[in-house]
Design a protein around this nucleic acid. Structure first.
Lengths: 217, 217
DNA sequence: ACCTAAGTGGCGCACATCTTCCATTTAGGC
DNA sequence: GCCTAAATGGAAGATGTGCGCCACTTAGGT
């Protein structure tokens, strides 16, 4: 087979893909804190099989999200092509946070680092270079405050992950509002109107739901 | 005894306080995701004793943080007295986020809600009223954007909790920088310089450390 | 068709957590 | 000082998790 580990028997390779697909599903729904057993169950294979293919959860996570981290790096590079530096920079953050919004596992992956040998980490480094150039371009165009640094992107991803992880059904609403505040703080397109805020009752219910989740797991 | 549950034998009441003190310590260090056993161990009591006094972790958390949530509400009210509305509002958020910074458990507590009967929740409601007035005052003084709402405070607390929870040793640095960006986005004291950013290498190590933490537990 | 090695998963082990039961201990009114 | 009811924690059950053994199955070259 073209992909994956070298010289794997056909049925084994198929199971490997089943596992990766299942892992992507489960991680997206429930974040990275799921048991290997749940993933094996979803994939329809036994636990030992999962463990044989992926020695640790770290390996599984890295491989399951390799494509998405690659897409993340591609996004950063694509943003460099945008004619308007402000729109490019802003669009990049909007797209990335949207990915965090629909994949709780990916939100976590974006805020960790892997051993440098993994492809995931190489994508991350590739993205870093693009991001630095993206920032420089925006600064040169005068649309981004000059004391902004590439590490602030990590700050954004951490803050956004915290919001989407804790806001339950209001994640989308809070996400858009956080971005609006931050864009304003970054010096991008000053004076824009905020997206609508949730009501106090909605917030109360959303935080109560989060609380119930913690009780269960 | 004056405090706590009614008509508890002296030794039982003492153990109750030991448990609360231990819980505050452990929660502050490691967040709310610690086992009841660890808390019992730290308190020097058996698990069944802990469970008898506090039927669920929810109760224990609520009581352990009651004072801090009360202090939070007091902060909001005290901020109303500040002569400068901008400084009052800003100082409130700085103090609250500082509390999140030194107490990982409190950071989580601030972003959940409890059943309305608990004192914790009553403090939260008290704080909500003060915050609404604080916001109105700042808006009237023209130092806060008019589309800001009280629910955005929750947004700040969620985002900040995400940052301090995920940044490891860089929590302080990231915290200050996030606040600076948000204050700018809120329309407070425009044009301030940012606090210094961490280096790329520091960020890499901090996120690697977070990653190791996840591997362990 | 057959045979061998790769692949598989049921089963059991070790460990951590939450929960309950009950024999022992101890506080504090008398 | 005694005696009772309150309080305690060791021990054991139930569940969920990571891990390894080993007999069974099956792919795929011959």
């Amino acid at each position: 087979m073209v992909a994956g580990a070298a010289s794997l028997r056909a049925d084994a390779a198929r199971n490997r893909e089943l596992i990766l697909a299942a892992a992507r599903e489960v991680f997206a729904e429930s974040g990275l804190d799921v048991s290997m057993r749940q993933i094996a169950l979803r994939a329809g294979v036994g636990e030992p099989t999962l463990r044989r293919r992926f020695g640790s959860k770290e390996e599984l996570v890295a491989e399951a999200f390799e494509d998405k981290v690659g897409a993340y790096a591609d996004l950063a590079n694509a943003a460099l092509e945008a004619p308007d530096p402000a729109a490019g920079f802003r669009g990049f953050l909007e797209k990335v946070t949207a990915m965090q919004l629909v994949d709780r596992g990916f939100a976590d992956v974006l805020t960790m680092t892997f051993p440098p040998t993994m492809r995931c980490e190489q994508h991350r480094r590739r993205s870093y270079e693009a991001i630095e150039r993206l920032i420089a371009k925006a600064k040169d165009a005068g649309v981004l405050r000059r004391d902004f640094v590439a590490e602030d992107i990590v700050l954004v991803l951490l803050a956004h992950a915290g919001v989407v992880g804790g806001a339950g059904k209001l994640a989308g609403s809070f996400s858009a509002r956080l971005l609006a505040f931050l864009f304003e703080g970054f010096g991008l397109n000053a004076g824009d109107a905020l997206p609508p805020a949730p009501s106090a009752a909605q917030v109360y219910r959303a935080l109560l739901r989060l609380h119930d989740d913690k009780k269960q797991g």
